[in-house]
Design a protein around this nucleic acid. Structure first.
Lengths: 131, 131
DNA sequence: CTTGACCTTGTAGTTACTACAAGGTGCATA
DNA sequence: TATGCACCTTGTAGTAACTACAAGGTCAAG
């Protein structure tokens, strides 16, 4: 698939895709005879992954690390283990925070549907468990 | 509490705190006789909220919206409802993505602990449910 | 044969910070 | 009393991760 198609499929600007290639986040695509980038389904999957990971608050460096886990066949288990452990900790913390926020939003929604204004604990939803 | 104390308590640079004040994300603090910013516990809670929300991938504009829900007493339920609905959708999607990623990381960890290298589906963990 | 998608290099704007510098006040402590 | 550190202000500039142009060129479908 060509860059425009990939851009559309992932909601990413073509310029951003080229930027990811320059930054080594997305592997360079094959080229057609006319020098157009020709993306595979793996490229598509990787790009979706990158975009989601970024939307979840991971930095480019973290995305790089996560992607590196993909070819951990090369590296000894011990090395990979530490990295996975660290990422897992962060992911778990994010889920906890989001779940707390989700609960409060649902609470607000229930209050609204009952057409009464409940007290709002939205700030507390994330602020409370001070780690 | 003074800015340095607040900075330390939240892991935020003092300069960032002043920046949030300029941007209207954090309400201006009271001032001491010597013109030092004097923060309350509510400021602390709000700042923790802002930092977490940012780390979870919300933009400043979205954080502003979330904070605005705090004083929804002023506005009719219908208006708030829509906003909450929208935020809830995003939060739920983020949780789903993170849970999927968490599962894959845990799977990798189990493989590593058994000292064998499992096949890696980390990219697929986020790429699969193409919405 | 024109129109639109693609190619390149390069510059500059945006968001959300982060880091200085310069010049000044407040205040605790040696 | 002097030193030093935390704070104040305004301002400029750097960083990360894009995003948007422009200029100049190639390619291919209608």
């Amino acid at each position: 698939m060509r860059i425009g198609e990939l851009a559309k499929a992932t909601g990413t600007k073509a310029e951003t895709i080229r930027y990811y290639e320059r930054e080594g986040i997305l592997p360079a695509a094959d080229r057609t005879d006319s020098n157009y980038r020709d993306y595979s389904d793996e490229h598509l999957a990787t790009l979706i992954f990158v975009r989601r990971a970024r939307a979840l608050g991971f930095t480019m460096a973290q995305v790089r690390e996560l992607l590196a886990l993909s070819d951990h066949e090369d590296k000894p288990c011990r090395d990979v283990d530490q990295l996975v452990q660290r990422q897992l900790g962060e992911v778990t913390r994010k889920i906890a925070d989001l779940t707390s926020l989700q609960n409060e939003l649902q609470h607000m929604l229930r209050s609204c549907q009952a057409d009464r204004i409940g007290e709002c604990r939205i700030v507390e939803s994330l602020a409370r468990p001070l780690r």
